[in-house]
């Protein structure tokens, strides 16, 4: 647990990640011995409060999707715990997990691969209802209509197949499917990245409206800061498997502390040329090739302000509930 947490945990947290690690072994040779591992997630502590949206940003390969998939049980964490409403769910067997499945759902990035092409929309939405007995059998059809209505699709479309829909409409079906089990937490794994810009806003507004109406909690994963800023109450910035900065959305955007966050914000295009800063931090290379040293700050090799201390010692996430960052120079 971290220092920043004490202040923010006034209401009981819905989800707690405690030292979550996910390492993928790299196997080589005849005996399939693991010679090394990719540390996709390397010790992440996070708290998600009921009703909030926590944004998770970071560049490709930083482990943000792995966190999302671990929460919904698609990945078994190598180390660490995931607590949902106080129950540890990461160590549950598949069968025991079934009860929690309905409370934790996920919306995928690619609406083209997330819907089974052989099933009509009605089948797709009715199946989870039937399997989990959410509503009595004779009400399934009306519940499907209700789901379609709340995501803004015409109920007449339910006999159609996924390929007959556009990307945005498919994403709405994906959201309806996640909602069908009446979850408390929805992991949105880059839900708008694959959509047209004009559709992105629609889907984000839909997610926001649903959150209000259904009292949902989101973990909103994205690599674009615009979407995250619009959606989130709090934002966590990830870099190579660790959270380097976390804070409320306004605070993080107004006063970024970690040099990586600053670089991310500088990379955010500003429409008005007069407001553009001259002194932008532009990162060289990318995270995959950066090859962090084993003990120092993992941002060391790309950091514009790094010193010898950064190479030797890994900074802890320090701050209060509103804003914390893992950098020696955050103040």
């Amino acid at each position: 647990m971290n220092n920043y947490e004490a202040a923010s945990s006034s209401p009981a947290p819905l989800l707690v990640l405690d030292g979550l690690k996910k390492h993928y072994p790299i196997r080589r040779g005849l005996l399939n011995r693991s010679v090394n591992s990719i540390k996709a997630v390397d010790g992440v502590d996070l708290t998600i409060l009921p009703g909030e949206t926590l944004g998770l940003v970071g560049e490709s390969g930083c482990g943000k999707s792995t966190i999302g998939r671990s929460i919904v049980g698609l990945e078994k964490p190598t180390e660490g715990r995931i607590l949902f409403e106080g129950t540890e769910i990461s160590s549950l067997s598949n069968r025991e997990m079934t009860d929690f499945r309905s409370k934790l759902q996920i919306v995928f990035q690619d609406p083209y691969s997330s819907l089974n092409p052989r099933k009509s929309i009605e089948d797709l939405l009715a199946e989870p209802l039937l399997v989990h007995r959410i509503v009595p059998k004779n009400e399934v059809s009306s519940e499907v209509d209700r789901l379609l209505e709340i995501v803004g699709l015409p109920t007449t479309s339910k006999h159609r197949y996924p390929h007959e829909f556009s990307g945005g409409q498919r994403q709405r079906v994906g959201i309806a499917r996640a909602l069908s089990l009446r979850p408390k937490l929805i992991v949105c794994d880059e839900p708008v990245s694959a959509l047209d810009v004009s559709i992105q806003a629609q889907v984000m507004n839909l997610l926001k409206d649903l959150q209000q109406e259904l009292n949902l909690t989101y973990l909103f994963i994205a690599h674009g800061l615009g979407a995250v800023k619009y959606m989130s109450d709090r934002i966590a910035v990830m870099y190579l498997g660790k959270i380097v900065e976390i804070g409320t959305a306004e605070e993080l955007f107004r006063n970024p502390k970690h040099p990586y966050t600053k670089a991310l914000l500088d990379a955010f295009p500003i429409a008005n040329p007069r407001l553009r800063l001259n002194a932008r931090t532009v990162l060289q290379d990318d995270a995959i090739n950066a090859n962090p040293s084993s003990h120092g700050c993992r941002f060391y090799s790309r950091c514009p302000v790094a010193t010898a201390q950064c190479r030797e010692q890994e900074p802890e996430l320090i701050g209060d509930g509103d804003h914390a960052s893992a950098c020696f120079f955050s103040n």
Binding site: V72, L74, Q105, I106, D110, L115, N116, P128, H132, L181
Partner: peptide, 17 residues
């Protein structure tokens, strides 16, 4: 590897289904 199979896992469907 398709997301719809992963979605089925998350939706709590059993393996035979």
């Amino acid at each position: 590897q398709m997301d719809y199979v992963k979605a089925s896992v998350v939706l709590g469907f059993r393996m035979p289904r």
